[in-house]
Amino acid sequence: MSVASTAHHEQTDSVWRDLRQLLSFRNISAIYIWVAMVILFSVLAPETFPTLDTVRIVLTDQAVTAVLAIGLVIPLAAGAFDLSIGSQLGLGAILVAWLLRTQGLGLVPAIIGTLAIGACVGLANGLLVTKAKISSFITTLGMSSVLLALISWVSQDSQILNLGSGFQQIANRQILSIPMSVYIMVVLAICVWYILDNTYLGRAVYATGGNAEAARLAGIGTDRVIIVSLISCSLLATVAGIVLSSSLATGDPTVGPPYMLPAFAAAFLGSTQFRNGRFNILGTIVAVYVLATGVKGLQLIGAPVWIPELFNGVALLIAVAVTRRRSSRKRARSAETTSLTADQAA
């Protein structure tokens, strides 16, 4: 055999290996599970499940969760938790309604004002984590409670109605019979994906999450990375809140917190997909829709109302268990990993 053809052989071999690795169950298990669920529910509920309407409903319903989860991926990649995303979503939802109705601001100033306040919340989180050195877990847990109080105060615990048709159009206007909220989500996903995956800034975010001290010694401003990632997360949570209020045509003081768990479940489940244990946007979006498909299917075959909560909770636990197992196996397999890094988790 000539040298050239051996080389060629090796190349096709490695292409083949890459492809197998790409399609392996470990890498894209969520896609396989998703396909299995679609088939299962199509058989169990042939009338209602495999319809264009169901597709549209799932797509639309989950746009808000997806935006929230996209935001959450950023601080998680930087090694910081944000447990206040649910309340931040709630704050965005109520603030925009309050500014529009109660304060009588115009559409654009109301939205800008809401986003600015959202960013301030993120900044506060970031400063508490980096300057006051409170762990992100505690910081955002506390912040979450503060925000709930704020929501209650601003809204007087009642809904704010009549937000005007201009505002409703933001989320509900349809293009190709798909509402704007879905387009907003897709655009945001692409932006964040581009930054995280294709710029040095994204590398800096992952490096900070991987080993903050080493990142700092390589000249990365790790404090700034953490602050910026928490601000971005807050901004996206606020956007999600605005979109939610727009699509409901109501400012509702209770909407926020229930969104947190699905977002975490999606981000963690997403981290087990495509990128070998790294938090990533594509995996997260896929996870949002895999979870939503499961919930929708269960509803359509007549499962009781508590099933969605159960489903999301179990999915989060399984996703985290899988990530942990994989990383501990990696630790075992690796030539050397320090046990010192293990306690960075908190």
Binding site: Y200, Y206, A207, N211, A214, A218, G219, I220, T337, L340
Partner: peptide
């Protein structure tokens, strides 16, 4: 482990992780 590298990132990502401020 503690200061030199981000063990969870790839070799090439570690290799190019030093950005000269101002240059890139």
């Amino acid at each position: 482990h503690r200061h030199g590298a981000v063990m969870t990132m790839t070799a090439v990502e570690n290799l190019v992780s030093v950005l000269i401020p101002g240059a890139t």
